[in-house]
Design a protein around this nucleic acid. Structure first.
Lengths: 235, 235
DNA sequence: GGTGAAGTGGACGTGATCCTCCACTTGTTC
DNA sequence: GAACAAGTGGAGGATCACGTCCACTTCACC
């Protein structure tokens, strides 16, 4: 390999190679931390995971929003692609259902993305561009599904972010104790969108799981469990 | 000294009258603060509103859960009563729909209660007793609505807390920018519960409102002075 | 009024998180 | 390999919330 005297840019960022490596470490660490703990995870924690000092992190990403945008850029593109894919489905209704499920599933696998999908970041251009693209495609998907007579006529595209907010609420409460609950919510929602009823629901969470989902409040992680209320005997 | 010649007990709590007054001030302040800011509001803030010192607050309610239980005792009873009322409705399906809407509306008017309804507080006896009563009545309501052929057969009572979690998610995101959005979600959910389709949806939020709902993130992180809801850039 | 128990307030130690700042290290270039 | 710009880390000031502690105040009863 010949060190050419001009344009030493391995990745396009004008950074020194060691700095670029650190930047990548940071983004990777952020992705992991956000996925596990949500986008409110302490910046120090991200720095620690990345093996860099906080100073380095802050120089590269001055605000949390910057870091969030960088960490989820790829997922955001995948999100936009999902709408494009759904649009390619020959059956508009199937495409619609598939899309809603797929996006909600993306929320379910990443605590941070759950939140990101229900927020805008006006300063993150590319990020919001992907969101706009996804939305535009979704609008088209909605129109087609309506034209096919399968989607109720009074559905509006803004219902989708509302669904994502609802799903976020269920995920926030059940992710630990009954992690599949969201599937049932989504089935209900899709059901409600249909012009013609059908569809069976996924298995509901057990009463015990639901109890655990509702049993929050700090009190140091993983504690005792004395007498559980009626209906939820210890097995 | 336990034996006292007189029994000067104005309210049944064995407190000195001034102390009892302070206790009531605390509970009232907590109710207001929780309703506005959610149950995570700083304890100091509650004490400040009540016009007492934090020490006083902590002596009376050693943990946040204790204070929450005291603050929402009344609402919890109202919540349980709603189920009883619904059960009295001659039309089981109407009772069911009415109940779901009513409870979700209770969430919508109180940020704290929104959360409380999706949590258990095993140590707060009376509190959980009300919840159990509500649930038992709801189970009966469900059975009747199914028997009437109006509620889908695969609905399970645990779907109700799931709905509350979903509603909490929508409320958390939209309470400021599009405070009626939850009504539309609830209409969708009820729609999905029906064995026979019908019902029209409430007006959806406007695209602009939905944008504002998604526009969160601290950024202009100043202190939040009363009367200044986070301003959105795009006028 | 006097007395003691009950009650009070808020200063304070602790710990978490934010973000800045700058003395030091390292890569790059000549 | 020398010199300098680029990059680094983490100490530390600022802020915020928690929950305790105790010198002081107030009530209730005599």
């Amino acid at each position: 390999m010949t060190p050419q005297p001009t344009a030493p840019e391995p990745t396009g960022t004008g950074l020194r190679v060691d700095a670029e490596l650190n930047r990548q470490r940071i983004v990777t660490a952020a992705r992991e931390a956000f996925a596990e703990s949500g986008i409110d995870v302490p910046m120090d924690e991200v720095a620690r995971r990345a093996g860099v000092g906080v100073g380095t992190l802050y120089r590269r990403y001055p605000s949390r929003a910057d870091l969030v945008a960088a960490a989820f850029e790829g997922k955001m593109t995948a999100y936009a692609d999902a709408a494009r894919t759904a649009l390619a489905d020959p059956d508009p209704w199937h495409g619609f259902c598939d899309y809603v499920e797929r996006v909600c599933a993306m929320q379910a696998t990443d605590r941070g993305f759950t939140t990101v999908l229900t927020m805008t970041f006006p300063t993150a251009k590319r990020f919001e561009a992907d969101r706009d693209r996804a939305f535009a495609d979704f609008v088209e998907l909605v129109d087609r599904a309506k034209a096919a007579g399968r989607l109720r006529a009074d559905f509006v595209p803004e219902d989708m972010p509302m669904f994502l907010m609802a799903n976020a609420g269920v995920l926030a409460a059940t992710a630990d104790a009954a992690p599949d609950t969201w599937r049932r919510l989504v089935a209900y929602l899709i059901q409600a969108c249909a012009a013609v009823p059908a569809r069976t629901l996924p298995e509901p969470p057990s009463p015990r799981e639901m109890y655990r989902a509702m049993l929050r409040f700090p009190q140091s992680a993983g504690q005792h469990s004395p007498g559980t209320p009626a209906g939820s005997p210890q097995a």
